[in-house]
Design a protein around this nucleic acid. Sequence first.
RNA 1: UGGGAUGUCGCCAAGUGGUAAGGCACCGGAUUUUGGUUCCGGCAUUCGCAGGUUCAAGUCCUGCCAUCCCAGCCA
Length: 559
Amino acid sequence: MEKSNFIWDFIDEDLKAGKNGGKVVTRFPPEPNAYLHIGHAKAIYVDFVTAERYGGYCNLRMDDTNPLKEEQEFIDAIQEDVAWMGYRWKHLTYASDVFDDMYRHAVELIQKGLAYVDDLSAEEIREYRGTLTQAGKNSPYRDRPAAENLDLFERMKNGEFPDGTKVLRAKIDMASGNINMRDPVMYRIQHASHYRQGDKWCIYPMYDWAHGLEDSAEGVTHSLCSLEFEDHRPLYDWFLAQLPVHRPRQIEFARLYVSYTLLSKRFYRVLMEKGLISGWDDPRVPTIRGLRRRGFTPEAIRRFVETIGISKTHSVVDYALLEFCLREDLNARATRRMAVLDPLKVIIENYPEDKEEWFEGENNPENPDSGNRKIPFCRELYIEREDFMIDPPKKFFRLGPGKEIRLKHAYYVTCTDYRTNDQGEVTEVICTYDPASRGGWTDDGRKVKGTSHWVSARHCVDAEVRNYGQLFSVEKPWEHEGEFEEILNPDSLSVVTGCKVEPALSEGARGEVNGTIEGVFQFLRLGYYSVDLDSSPEKPVFNRTVGLKDTWAKVQKQD
RNA sequence: UGGGAUGUCGCCAAGUGGUAAGGCACCGGAUUUUGGUUCCGGCAUUCGCAGGUUCAAGUCCUGCCAUCCCAGCCA
């Protein structure tokens, strides 16, 4: 069981005090106006795992109180994403399902003299509200008799008044230091059609009024939300205290920030409108769908949110931790394959032209049950261009004139010569192979330090590879004041064509079957790559999910 | 004297009066048919600052400082 945190400590206390009959019920309540992102993944984890921990359950609730911004498309996508991440909700609920109850409770509040219909305009309400340091003043309509409020409120509901002409407000305290308590608006008039309620309603409830009642109606015991709702809690409690209803406890925790990423709906929308990303599932974007397309696994995402912990500290988690969690999962589960991204031709001069061999290569050295695949070998191969240097430095464990390396799973080869073009670029490397090293090993005690990946020129398949980098060039993009474009990383996507991959990769399909990942591979010595949505057997396309740790690159940088 | 919250290693984060867990990152070194993985070792005499209480304080008290959130008929 996971280590505890302040939320679970609170719940332990509640349970010990005998609250809620020992039950723990939570909810994940997204507003269906956008796709989920990794910030939601943390909230989802907190909500679902908390319920699970105490043998309770979690509901998935669409917080659909604003028909102007919400769409069915998002309702479908949210369910899909939560399910993909492996969470099971007990009930799928909708805030709009309890609109009738909310209306009835609003009437109760009016009858108790705790709510009134206000004719002030939006601007006037703002003026009357006062400022952070000055108290507000009462609306002239604040003391309307209950009977008049009741009549007006019903007529608001019936659509007798135009949008914006009246609101229902709670009567609390216009001088409160907490601005949320200065007679908050409970209902606004919106002659808008709701995708689930049709034209039934001309008034729609505000968040503060609606949320506690939604929680209450579902029997939620612990309403977990982010820090910015901390000063809404007194209002949450106030509304429920006035009514004869179940009273959940709201607990706030810090939302997730990840370096080099922006977790905001508005931002994705803008980038999309400007054509800077391809959509909600652009592999550079940390939406659940983007991460999924990029090749992230639900397990890696969950491990990540589990690892960062739950607290009230405003924190920014290193992107490097996300990558670590990803690699940890993929290392254990991704199938190994060889791919050459920047091909350089190698000719084995002592290997017969008409001969070919098929070697066995393990699918995953971390998993003995993963089996092997066949890898073809012949006289002409491709290796990575950066694995050859004409005049290599001493610690270069790769190919160069006179140097011997191992071709993974195949043979030892020694470079005897190379050819260049008019520009001095190397066009071909000439080698000899040692027949005694078949399989990539000899028992003569020979030290062959370097091992390179390769593909057979005769058998390989052409592929496109999309290498991704950070979308932003600054660590804390949310602190940037100007336009997004100014801090976008121009190299966030680099498309590499003409890559040569081993034939076993041409069948690469994408999917998750029985808990094993398909379509996410480790390209030996390069990184983890996943089959993209755009891929086809005729034209394979791979996304770089995340690179392997590269200590050689680090050493080079130091020199 | 608006209200609410937070400050423990570069980044997260335990710690609930008894003498600073863990992870990431980073730095060494070993193993390695991936310069990957794995493995060993290093990495806060100090907990925003200053006083105080106590045999003993990151933990209690007082004061100060810094940062974040709130003035939608958004959620």
